[in-house]
Amino acid sequence: MVAEGDEAGLLSRRQSLWLTGAGLSLIAVCYGLARFAYGLFVPVFRAEFALDAGTAGAIASGSYVSYCLAIIASTILTPRFGGRAVAVAAGMTATAGVLIVAAAPTAGVLAVGVLIAGSSTGVASPPLAHAVAHTVPAPMRNRTQTVINAGTGIGVAVAGPIALLTHEHWRVAWVLFAIICALATLWAAFVVPSGPVNRSGATTADALIPRPLLPTGSGRLLTAAALMGAASSAMWTFGRDLLVSTGGMSESASSIAWVFLGAFGVLGAAAGDLSRCFGIRASWVTTMLVMGLATGLLAAYPGIVAVAWLASAAFGAAYIALTGLLLIGGTEVYTQAPAAGVGLAFLVIALGQAAGAPVMGALSASAGPFIAFIAAAAVAAIGAFIRPVVRRP
């Protein structure tokens, strides 16, 4: 097991790398498998459980709502029980939710499984941010945060080939997801440090309500997060369904598009370097515009394989980079409460997605998927100019 660190409470470089690997793996299974794999399987779920676009969007929205509740609970519990305990709870939640999806006999049970699995992402982010902020040396901290955050891309990239290989046997795919979730949970149990723990329950720097609640820069940070979440909801929920139902793309080609989305999402690990070289504001504008362009491109040419793959790759890289920029912003705006800062930023992303998913589903059902995706692209374009402002005290 990784020790808590040196005399100053910081991990060595080797220990920090182990933490990075374990954290990246946990984020990969919670986000890439337990949460976002739902969008990959929307076509087969719609056929299996006779779901229309509105119902599929509502289930996705429920997943985001459960995420919101979970991230609040995780932000409260992390300083009290430590990063390791809450991180392990996240992995166990992901494993349980994925298993429920695998065994779901009805649409109702499917929705319950998706809600539980989706909540694991809310549990995972604050303890990992807490552990990194308090135990990783400062020169490595931002890069460690953004590399761990890029685990989402790896998880999405892993889900694609599994879906392709299992094809119509989707339950087998979700059982495999559960096994991978369990393995990542074990790794986290042995590697993630607890960080500072306050078991007395007294107010700490990582309390649920940081002081001040809205420090300088928080308004723009949270508004940017909300618009980014809403703009991304169309792709995450209906991206593959658009390729199959509207574009007439084959199962293999649409699954490969999902692999590209995840694989290029790993490039989002460069968010820390982007923010250092160009600043968060300039990086945000460029990356949001890329995400909006990718969303619009997929809507315009859903039947052209090369365009779909390119758009998926660009979306994946942009999305992960944007979450990385918000993660850095959350830890820097809320310097005395990094877990609370990350929790608030990611909570607002999910609120944007929870609002966006049913709206995109309703738009798709009434006006067609093209209009829904163009609306999402427009939200991204607007959000590009709501730039997070990070002010260090």
Rank of each mutant, 00 (worst) to 15 (best):
P212R: 02
I386L: 12
G9F: 11
A53M: 07
A56F: 03
A253I: 03
V98H: 11
V266T: 13
F315L: 08
V156F: 09
M235F: 15
T246D: 15
A60V: 00
R84W: 11
A22N: 11
A47Y: 07
I209H: 09
A133M: 14
A102H: 07
S312W: 01
A173W: 04
H134R: 15
L51E: 04
L310G: 05
I328D: 01
A150N: 07
A94W: 09
G57Q: 01
G296S: 07
L19C: 11
S283E: 04
A362T: 08
I154A: 15
L289T: 02
A253V: 09
S61G: 14
L10I: 00
A253S: 14
S255V: 02
P338W: 02
Q15E: 15
M1N: 08
R143K: 15
L327Q: 10
F238R: 02
G97Q: 02
G343T: 12
F238E: 02
V259F: 15
L297F: 11
F190Q: 13
A94M: 07
A129W: 11
T185R: 14
V65Y: 10
Y334M: 10
V44M: 03
A306C: 05
G247V: 10
G113V: 00
A234Y: 04
G361S: 04
G118L: 07
V2W: 01
T216S: 11
S12P: 02
G217K: 04
T95D: 04
F49E: 05
L11A: 10
V244T: 13
R141G: 06
A263L: 14
I76D: 04
W309S: 02
R276T: 12
A150M: 09
V348F: 10
A269D: 03
T55A: 08
G32P: 06
I349Q: 12
G268T: 01
L110S: 10
A354R: 01
Q15H: 06
A107C: 00
A53I: 02
G383H: 05
